[in-house]
């Protein structure tokens, strides 16, 4: 009797088997994240050292003492040839570019997708495919004509010139088209019976329903806009219009006489330039995932 109960109470201790394929998976993942993170960590560490140390010793693997100086200099000290632009100004420019780029793209592509999906005009599908094929023509291909147009409109060194030529978005239009197509037909019909015209349907129903989709596209586009390099470099000659991404390079170029370039400041600026996109992704992460996978409409 006792034997039986103890046998039930204590099942034979089985040694946990090591599942080698899980160990393997984790090793791959850890290696992958180290590969991605290491440059960032090294930049962060190096940005806390003074220029001489960096110049003589290269990349640093520990925390230095000049963090405060470097970051302060990066953010608030006027630099460049004209000595008019500081880190804050460049950050503002980047923000304007990133926000204008993302919001503009969302507005334009939502309206384009709305027209394509909900209005039965001739060649709607054709129009969509035309928009879609522009994916094959990135900015780099049309950069000279674009520059010519912007220049002749007198839009060099303006925010408009910085943002507008980049705003048309085949990707955005495509995403919104797919999303609108998945909104049930009955929703539109119910709205029509409720007396909502095309404008009310768009703003009262379609836009709120697309919230998570808008958030997802906003994140992608903001990061993409923030990281724009080629177009701002071409477009802006006035240092007041410089974006962060462009400004980093500028610091390294100030190589006058026997001066050592401001390595520490450049590193600090790189870290600063990285922060807003990272913050946006972290903050909107939930929405982002929802926007991509959520099916309830």
């Amino acid at each position: 009797m006792t034997d039986i109960t103890t046998a039930i109470a204590q099942p034979p201790v089985r040694r946990r088997k090591i599942r080698w394929n899980r160990v393997f998976d984790h090793v791959i993942l850890i290696l992958g994240s180290m590969f991605m993170l290491l440059p960032v960590v090294l930049t962060l560490l190096t940005s806390t050292w003074d220029n001489v140390t960096i110049h003589t010793g290269g990349i640093q693997y520990s925390i230095g003492e000049d963090a405060f100086r470097n970051y302060q200099k990066a953010l608030f000290e006027k630099s460049g040839f004209s000595q008019v632009v500081d880190g804050m100004k460049m950050m503002t420019n980047s923000l304007i570019l990133g926000l204008g780029f993302a919001i503009g793209k969302i507005v334009i592509s939502m309206m384009a997708a709305y027209a394509i999906v909900y209005f039965r005009f001739r060649f709607a599908t054709f129009a969509f495919w035309i928009v879609f094929t522009t994916l094959l023509l990135p900015l780099e291909v049309r950069i000279l004509p674009s520059y010519e147009v912007v220049q002749s409109l007198g839009l060099l060194n303006t925010y408009t010139g910085l943002i507008v030529p980049l705003i048309a978005s085949a990707t955005g239009t495509f995403y919104f088209r797919q999303f609108f197509k998945s909104v049930p037909e009955e929703t539109l019909e119910a709205a029509r019976i409720d007396g909502a015209g095309p404008i009310h349907f768009f703003f009262d129903i379609l836009v709120p329903v697309s919230q998570t989709m808008i958030a997802a596209i906003f994140i992608i586009m903001f990061v993409y806009g923030w990281n724009q390099y080629l177009w701002p470099t071409l477009m802006t000659t006035d240092e007041n219009m410089f974006t962060l991404v462009r400004g980093i390079k500028q610091i390294m170029q100030v190589w006058i006489g026997a001066n050592i370039p401001d390595y520490g400041v450049a590193m600090a600026l790189a870290i600063i330039a990285m922060t807003p996109p990272v913050l946006i992704v972290i903050l909107f992460q939930n929405w982002f995932v929802k926007g991509l996978v959520e099916s309830e409409k």
Binding site: E189, A190, G195, P208, V209, E296
Partner: peptide, 20 residues
């Protein structure tokens, strides 16, 4: 227009506005 006909319709999938 549907809205001017003084009718109301109940749909199979209800067609409620999900965000309201």
């Amino acid at each position: 227009d549907p809205a001017q006909r003084d009718i109301a319709m109940v749909f199979q999938n209800y067609a409620l506005y999900p965000h309201m």
